[in-house]
């Protein structure tokens, strides 16, 4: 599936919830299901700045696809992170760089999450795009 197809699917799933509780229970559930990041990647360098709780992000190339793995101490953030991974992980650096993440607004997350957490999410997206740019440059110079 393309990045936009995945986003559209998420938007559809969120349309099923008519109250905040359902929405948050879903996000918490995603957080619980996200596999733990192996301890060797929970390094100082992999910590994303700008989040109230610690978020680790690890990235590597698999063929021409960029793979992300991530984790957080806080379960709601972990659920949000899981959504970002679902949307962006496993695509080429180029696709990731071009991605417009409209789902964040469409599922009502920017308004449903306090400012600081939205900012944390924004730092995460920024960091993912930074990895995409870095790997794209490496690939081009090969």
């Amino acid at each position: 599936m393309t990045i936009n197809e995945i986003q559209d699917e998420l938007i559809e799933e969120f349309e099923l919830f008519d109250d905040w509780e359902g929405k948050y229970e879903y996000i918490i559930d995603l957080g619980k299901k996200l596999p733990k990041l192996s301890d060797e990647y929970k390094t100082e360098d992999n910590i994303i700045k700008g989040c109230q709780s610690i978020v680790w992000l690890h990235a590597y190339m698999n063929g021409d696809k960029l793979i992300f793995e991530a984790d957080s101490e806080a379960i709601i953030v972990k659920g949000l992170v899981s959504m970002l991974l679902k949307v962006l992980s496993g695509h080429t650096p180029e696709e990731i760089l071009k991605a417009d993440l409209y789902f964040i607004n469409r599922v009502g997350l920017s308004s449903h999450l306090a400012q600081t957490r939205s900012n944390g999410l924004a730092s995460m997206v920024k960091q993912m795009k930074a990895y995409a740019l870095a790997f794209q440059t490496i690939e081009e110079n090969k």
Partner: peptide
């Protein structure tokens, strides 16, 4: 439970 989750909910 992480304090941030407490705050959000």
């Amino acid at each position: 439970i992480h304090p941030q989750d407490v705050g959000v909910i």
